[in-house]
């Protein structure tokens, strides 16, 4: 069961992240639901498991091309795959961690785990309908996936 204010908390976190870290705002795309199958993912996905007050998963998924430019915007010259994985995890972690401002301390978040698209579709809890929010940045498109009970 999604609540708008809650989803917005994560969305605001994502927008804030790009504003501060990439110093360039994202254009938020039209959010939609995943009604069948697995959510669409890009090359790398940072997955944060949420427990405590709410249960579910928060994902940030982005293509290599975007991660590379993001790393460069952060003055990181090493754009290895290792660092791209690190970055999607960090973004997912930051967005989820920031959400504690609104959810409070009982909103527990895991350390990020990173999934590459080559490892197959992302399996999320089936009893939830995740909401996918496209984040368009420059010519690249990433997604924020919020899946909360």
């Amino acid at each position: 069961m999604l609540k708008e204010t809650e989803v917005r908390t994560f969305l605001d976190g994502a927008v804030h992240y790009f504003e501060v870290s990439a110093r360039q705002p994202v254009a938020v795309g039209v959010p939609y639901l995943v009604t069948t199958g697995a959510p669409p993912v890009n090359d790398f996905t940072g997955v944060i498991a949420v427990s405590g007050k709410r249960k579910g998963v928060i994902c940030f998924t982005a293509p290599r091309s975007m991660l590379m430019v993001l790393l460069m915007r952060m003055n990181e010259s090493d754009t290895s795959e290792e660092n791209m994985r690190d970055l999607v995890g960090e973004v997912a972690n930051t967005i989820s961690g920031n959400a504690r401002r609104d959810f409070g301390r009982d909103f527990c978040i895991s350390v990020p785990s990173i999934v590459a698209s080559s490892a197959g579709p992302l399996s999320l809890p089936t009893e939830m309908r995740p909401v996918v929010i496209p984040l368009n940045w420059r010519t690249h498109s990433a997604r924020l996936i919020v899946c909360l009970s």
Partner: peptide
């Protein structure tokens, strides 16, 4: 330096 933005933390 943390992403955890709640005050109790």
């Amino acid at each position: 330096i943390s992403a955890l933005a709640d005050k109790a933390t």
